[in-house]
Amino acid sequence: MNNLKTLMLMVLLGAIMIFIGGLVGGKGGMMVMLMISLGMNFFSYWFSDSVVLKMYNAREVSREEAPQLYGLVENLAANAELPMPRVYIINEDTPNAFATGRNPSHAAVAVTTGIMRALDYNELSGVLGHELAHVKNRDILTGTIAAMMATVITYTAQFFAFFGGRSDDDEGGNPIAALLMVFLAPLAASLIQMAISRSREYEADHDGAEICGNANYLADALEKIEYYALNGRQMSDATPATAHMFIINPFSGIGSTMSRLFSTHPDTSDRIARLRAQAAGR
């Protein structure tokens, strides 16, 4: 159901993108937006991993440099029947982790020095299992494309609001309805992007628990990471554009009172409850 939901939301996001293009430039605008969408997909497919890793100054490590971490990732990748991903460490006190890469053969997992200190071996295996589930399900690419499409919709709508649009259809359109859509489309795109991200987090929790062998490992890890996030430990270099990639939202402590509709991640307590139920066989 999560996979079907994601597909439907991506189709809806693409429809909004093409519609906004039509408002700005008629049929020609729709084609431009379609080409922009294809260009974004190509860019995110090939370069998203290197861009994000550089953004956070992640350092690749070898087996010799981080034997326990490297060995854990290697064992979990074997459990998930995945190629061995590259392993990175981010010099950051906040406990967090993410995965990136265009496909399982070009994947990377990154952990902060803070999470390596805060979690024990089993808890870290739960986190890394979750990240490898994202790799296996190709969620990194899905999330990146959704974020970029939502951004283009927002910028195009702002352009329309300031400079107006032109339709090449003889019948024209309702200007009031068009203006309403210009303001509502970015909101709808943002909500859809967040819903896609939350759906993929639930799926990665479930599959990651199976990869590490015990859903309680991940549940325990989430409790600890959430504690740090809610007590003033936000990542110094985190950006909203990459928030969906992390094990929990790096802005949890700042935006914890916001509506769940605008969150990249499900409520952590709900995730933990689901994992506990999974561990109990329910």
Rank of each mutant, 00 (worst) to 15 (best):
D169P: 00
S256H: 02
Y121Q: 15
F251R: 02
H244I: 01
Q234K: 01
E171A: 15
N137G: 10
G143D: 04
Q193H: 11
E226V: 01
A277G: 10
L9H: 06
I153L: 06
F159G: 11
G172S: 05
G14W: 08
F160D: 04
D220E: 15
L4Q: 15
S167G: 10
D120R: 03
L187E: 08
G164R: 06
Y121C: 10
I140G: 05
W46R: 12
R200G: 08
A97K: 03
F251E: 00
N103H: 13
Q193Y: 09
T268Y: 04
A277H: 09
N96E: 00
F162W: 13
L34K: 02
R200P: 07
M10S: 12
A188Q: 08
F160T: 05
A108L: 05
I20P: 02
F262C: 01
E226Y: 00
L141P: 04
L124G: 01
N57H: 14
V11R: 10
Y155G: 08
T239C: 04
G281P: 01
G143M: 11
F42Y: 13
P266G: 01
D49W: 02
T268L: 00
G129M: 04
A204R: 08
M30K: 02
S167K: 00
A15W: 12
G101N: 14
P95I: 01
L13V: 12
T6P: 07
M149I: 13
G255V: 00
I176Q: 12
S269V: 02
D120P: 01
R198V: 05
T112M: 03
L38R: 08
A204N: 12
W46N: 13
F43N: 04
L222M: 12
S263K: 02
S197P: 11
R166T: 15
N41P: 04
L218A: 10
T242V: 08
Q193C: 06
E64I: 14
D270K: 12
I211S: 14
A146Y: 04
W46T: 08
V24E: 03
I196Q: 05
G164H: 06
D270L: 07
D93H: 09
I176N: 07
G14K: 09
L187R: 08
P83Y: 11
M40G: 05
A204W: 08
L230M: 14
V182Y: 01
T257F: 00
E223Q: 12
S197Y: 04
R276L: 07
Y45K: 12
G281M: 08
N57C: 06
H106R: 15
I211P: 11
L124Q: 04
I192P: 03
A157D: 03
D270R: 07
L132R: 05
T113F: 01
D267R: 02
S50G: 07
Y227Q: 07
D49N: 13
A147L: 05
L180Q: 12
H265M: 02
F183Y: 14
F262S: 02
A219W: 02
L119A: 04
H206K: 14
F19A: 13
L82K: 13
L180C: 12
A178T: 10
S62V: 10
T154F: 12
L141I: 13
F183C: 03
